[in-house]
């Protein structure tokens, strides 16, 4: 009857970011910061040169920020947001990466995704895969709000 007392202390809301997920979130955070900073510079100083590439940079940066937040926040809704944003990134890096090699004239200026993220040590290519793998392994439980 007193067994409730002996239950292990699990009062803290389990967040998605414990364990190795923290590293994933940290890398996402750094990438979000880098993409945000870069697109800020591009848009402020030379937006007219390549509106498409720079608008895309800004969009990618915004999505990285949302993905970072979604990875940290608990709950089913944020879990879906994380899936959506990470899938978007993966599509983006594949499509833009391929286009930038097949038809370089389309993207004369670098974006985060040009050449599969070469300017970012290919992290934009690898990270979504790790992110999706991690999300698949950490489905939110019904109990966690």
């Amino acid at each position: 009857m007193e067994s409730l007392q002996s239950a292990p202390v699990e009062t803290r809301t389990p967040t998605k970011m414990s364990g190795i997920g923290r590293v994933l979130v940290a890398v996402y955070g750094v990438l979000a910061l880098a993409a945000l900073g870069r697109s800020f510079v591009q848009i402020v100083s030379k937006y007219d040169e390549a509106p498409l590439a720079y608008a895309l940079s800004a969009l990618a940066a915004a999505v990285y920020v949302v993905a970072t937040i979604a990875l940290v926040r608990p709950g089913v809704v944020w879990y879906r947001v994380a899936w959506a944003t990470i899938a978007f990134e993966f599509t983006g890096v594949l499509v833009v990466g391929t286009l930038s090699i097949v038809d370089p004239a389309l993207f004369p200026h670098d974006t985060v995704w040009s050449w599969f993220g070469r300017g970012y040590l290919f992290i934009p290519l690898v990270l979504p895969v790790l992110g999706m793998w991690w999300l698949a392994k950490h489905r939110p439980t019904a109990g966690a709000a």
Binding site: R22, A26, V27, V30, G37
Partner: peptide, 29 residues
């Protein structure tokens, strides 16, 4: 400015939850 923000952020996080992955996060930063 971004570079200046990273180490404090990682250290702050490391102090919040001390486990091996916080050390890895320090390294990433």
């Amino acid at each position: 400015v971004s570079a200046a923000l990273l180490p404090p952020a990682a250290a702050f996080w490391a102090l919040l939850e001390r486990n091996r992955w916080s050390t890895v996060v320090l390294g990433v930063a």
